[in-house]
Write a protein that binds this DNA or RNA. Structure first.
Lengths: 228, 228
DNA sequence: ACAAAAAATGCTGCATACAGAATACAAAAG
DNA sequence: CTTTTGTATTCTGTATGCAGCATTTTTTGT
């Protein structure tokens, strides 16, 4: 992941609306990934010239993407000195998890009311896939599906603002969670919580789903606490 | 408010650290204000050339500011067609208020634990000032102090992420609330709720403060419901 | 040899310039 | 009169160039 990555305008792959995708979006998500995956460590200065050359883009669109990420809270703008990757303290992480927990509890309650059966089935499918990845010991895919499930539940709430805020926090925390490698027994516990979560969702049991989601995040904090 | 506003690099006013403030920040907050105050109505296309000329800035920093606002959710980026001021449906507003309510309830609980006496005193001062504005019938100042109080409570929680998310939603809703002119009796009710709020905060009564904040926002929705 | 000042380098911030896409308009065909 | 197609204009997307600030290196004085 540390090699020089070169960008291309996302080629229009399959069918669907021929939505020419702007370089801006590509750059933003690319930089996001670089930050999350640790290519750009916290505290790193984002060198416009150098970075732009690596990515094969001029400074202008790069700067715009950086400003965008600044508003998302991933980088910090220092006047006359450019941008640096934001560094989160342990308290920052705990604070984010506190808010995320509150949001997920809300999402759980709303999802039980608003979700369509099809929507729930999709989450179930993601969950089953995740469990099979767990059994295969595929941490990376497990991690990604895990994220997707939480995102999906936030969206099932039918509340766009909620899904939005949830997404912002989840993105900021991705870098942290990406690092947090828990041991086998804790991993198993996390999977069990997910199992319970899906059951509650399928039963449309508001109180239970909300409770499980909350508990899940509280334990998540305990899992990563030391690695922060 | 609808005249052509020209920008100047924020002059270094009083004392304090001589922090040269970048044009970027000025532009962002200026554009924010223009959107909130209705100078740029929802659905309006943000014309880079024209707008830049009005503000006396070239397109480059303007575009960067627009991208920033896009991430904040105030404008929407349409590929190859620039940016338009985001339009919120009634459901969008309701959704935002639902989340905001949840966040404020959380903030209320945390603030009762974490706030310093001095911090509470400051909120009390804001409140008293607001009440006097209310008695004077000064709607604009009342409105601004009202916002400040809610922001202050979010900050008293000591949770930066919470204050952050709260701020984003509050900014998005400002435009709406700015319009919502309630009648005298509802206005009085809102002030009474604020009174109760401060009392609960000073008593550090978590449950009560949280409850009042929630109720306050629920009623706020009823007040603006029709004007959206 | 050390400290302070001065020059030099590198980077950001902003403006301008150019290319390509989207839209608006006009003319021509049905 | 409506529809369609070709053209012109306008605006966005990206690159480049220049000026000012920050930092580092060199030079100079003690």
């Amino acid at each position: 992941m540390n090699e020089i990555t070169s960008l291309e305008r996302r080629p229009e792959g399959g069918p669907g609306p021929i939505r020419r995708t702007a370089l801006h979006d590509t750059l933003v998500s690319h930089l996001r990934d670089m930050i999350i995956e640790g290519d750009l460590a916290p505290g790193t200065r984002l060198h416009e010239g150098q970075l732009g050359e690596q990515l094969g883009v001029s400074r202008t669109p790069l700067r715009e993407a950086i400003k965008y990420l600044a508003s998302e809270g991933l980088v910090e703008l220092v006047p006359s000195r450019g941008a640096v990757v934001k560094r989160f303290s342990a308290k920052d992480v705990q604070d984010m998890l506190t808010v995320l927990r509150s949001l997920e509890e809300l999402a759980g309650r709303l999802a039980c009311e608003a979700a369509s059966d099809a929507g729930i089935a999709e989450v179930r499918a993601l969950h089953d896939e995740m469990v099979s990845r767990y059994k295969a010991g595929d941490r990376l895919q497990y991690y990604k599906l895990n994220q997707q499930i939480h995102t999906a539940i936030a969206q099932l709430s039918g509340n766009a603002a909620l899904a939005d805020m949830h997404g912002v926090l989840q993105t900021r925390l991705k870098r942290i969670r990406f690092i947090g490698h828990e041991g086998p027994e804790k991993w198993a516990a996390a999977v069990a919580e997910h199992e319970e979560m899906i059951a509650a969702l399928e039963a449309r049991d508001q109180a239970r789903l909300s409770e499980v989601l909350g508990r899940h995040l509280t334990k998540a904090w305990e899992r990563v606490r030391d690695s922060v």
